[in-house]
Design a protein around this nucleic acid. Structure first.
Lengths: 346, 346
DNA sequence: ATTCGTAAAGAGACCGGTCTCATAACGAAA
DNA sequence: TTTCGTTATGAGACCGGTCTCTTTACGAAT
């Protein structure tokens, strides 16, 4: 059923029917009535594809997240969706699985679908060609959770450095010196942080830098040796954790880079018979729902993720609507929620 | 940059350029080379909108879930996405928030976007007009997790009745008679199950029926009074749980209808100072990741959600490709994972 | 040399909307 | 009565692809 069909049935021209159905131009009440009844009788549904092809606007924003199963991202997606729906936009979600190649093809796909704008969590902050392509084509872009220093583009992230500093200080205040930082970034068991090229995402890098600076300020100069990679799944996390605890200078506290790592580390510790916080303390990034029901509940770095999503969408929509000005990087403050998973070192 | 631009730059006709760029028809190697270099020099990107408008296929399937933040659904979405990507389809996700109105407008939106097929978790199994509309328009449809009896359409669900029977038996085996079943479906505090119109989703209804039948078989005839609604959020769950425990015949065990309810119930019990499984036993539907890190870990009904998603997508794609035959309802078996949250009643 | 078959290229209609421009109708002002 | 302005409608181009139909070129077979 097309406008032409409706027009024929209502005995008006295609243009007039289109005016009624599309809600533009001026039409007399009589004709409007005529067309709408014909339309509903025929069960007319507008073809949004055709509509957005002529208008050049799809009313859709594309979102590319690292992992939709991660509660961090699904919360962000809700923030984005709520905000977008409010402004009359729809959202298409794509999953990159934190893989650059998937991210690239997702961007191609979404630009092909003529989204009006993009929100992306770049999986690799050192690769930005595909993103600058998008910008060159004229698609407004907002980076989410991570920045790309080489790219002059809007970004909405957490204040990762400050968050790590606060978390590290919290542990130091309890007397911890040997603190491990564990992240899921690809890496061999036992591999520790030596240079920034190991960490492709700016958020993790920022946290690690904050952690190292705070440890260094406390006189711990080899802290980087306890920044461990490779907690990609339960098996690898088990290996990373037991390697840490069997090392020459085992940590008395662990900082988990996100809630998935936090959960896995917790399982590893349970498996090794360690109790929290008596044997070891733990702080996790992201206030995941499960962190309140463990024994003890977990002290977390609370990131305003929903708000970050909301803000990213608002910024994007402003750009779509033609708001100018230089690229802005908004960093949202985090807070530490102290629960029971941090104690004094043995 | 359009095919016409590329054609002009490569000194060939629009039709020939389109043949190269669209990968159809026959073109000589020389011309192909000419066109592809021109295309990449100009940074040509196909307009998928235009493409799918002419072909009538968008290569996209639409998925409408109740709540993307619910791990049950995000796992299902991954199953669907993996399967769809494999077959060359992309996925658009929409959130209904379990609200019929949002579900309707999401369906309108997706059909307007000319998705090739739909996977829907119907928020209300008694309302099916919008879904039969979709079918009438010719969009293949698969129901996910829930069926609509009035509608002859493919569905992929869990074996909910059997799952509830197994879980209830498990509790009975430990000696429980007073067992409560708690669901998030809208309802007042203290409201219990009296008729099936209170439960708009077939999956929950199936579980409740299985539960009641099993209790009845064990000689508990007023089991329906312990089927409680209204565990929509933490506050309401707290109220529902304390109302239950302060009632005349407090339950010695609780069946939680999904992992969100399970988590909330656990928090409520903690808040009331009840310990699991000494004071009360608990089984939750869905093997959520957090269920292994609580103390004790939670006994769950493990639903093969990823597999359900995969299957739904495969069935849908088969229908899109014109596979005929009557509507099929696939029920996937669940299994009970016994952990530490079930003990003997006091 | 003629005929035929096939591969390669072009011309132009088409999908279903939007939107510009032209035209018709009508009432008010001169 | 003529002129003007405004509103309501129609005709048709356009968006960027696909695809059918036609024409041309070329090699093989007769």
């Amino acid at each position: 059923m097309t406008v032409a069909d409706v027009a024929r049935s209502a005995n008006v021209s295609k243009a007039t029917a289109a005016r009624v159905l599309g809600g533009y131009g001026t039409v007399s009440d009589k004709i409007r009535e005529q067309v709408t009844t014909a339309a509903s009788a025929l069960g007319y549904r507008p073809n949004e594809l055709a509509r957005s092809m002529t208008t050049g606007r799809s009313g859709t924003i594309g979102v590319i997240v690292g992992d939709i199963e991660n509660a961090f991202f699904s919360l962000a997606v809700r923030g984005i969706s709520d905000s977008a729906r409010n402004a009359g936009f729809n959202v298409i979600i794509a999953n990159s699985g934190e893989e650059l190649q998937a991210e690239k093809s997702a961007i191609d796909l979404l630009i092909g679908r003529r989204v009006d704008g993009l929100i992306v969590t770049p999986s690799d902050c050192r690769e930005s060609d595909h993103l600058s392509d998008a910008i060159r084509v004229g698609v407004p872009l907002i980076l989410f959770d991570r920045t790309i220093p080489a790219l002059q583009v809007d970004a909405v992230t957490g204040a990762d450095r400050e968050a790590a500093i606060a978390a590290t200080r919290h542990l130091q205040d309890f007397g911890h010196r040997q603190i491990a930082y564990i992240t899921a970034k690809e890496g061999a068991v036992g591999e520790f942080f030596t240079n920034e090229y190991q960490l492709p995402t700016s958020s993790v890098l920022g946290r690690v830098e904050g952690f190292l600076a705070t440890q260094s300020a406390n006189g711990v100069l080899d802290a980087h040796q306890l920044v461990r990679l490779g907690a990609t799944d339960q098996k690898h996390t088990d290996a990373v954790v037991s390697h840490l605890l069997n090392g020459s200078a085992p940590p008395t506290a662990i900082l988990a880079s996100d809630s998935l790592v936090g959960l896995q580390v917790l399982r590893s510790l349970h498996a090794l018979g360690m109790s929290v916080p008596e044997d070891i303390s733990i702080i996790s990034f992201f206030n995941a729902d499960w962190t309140t029901v463990t024994t003890p509940p977990i002290t977390v770095v609370d990131q305003p993720v929903y708000e970050m999503g909301r803000l990213a969408a608002e910024r994007l929509i402003a750009r779509i609507d033609g708001s100018g000005g230089p690229a802005e990087h908004t960093r949202l403050q985090t807070s530490l929620i102290s629960r029971g998973s941090v104690g004094r070192p043995k």
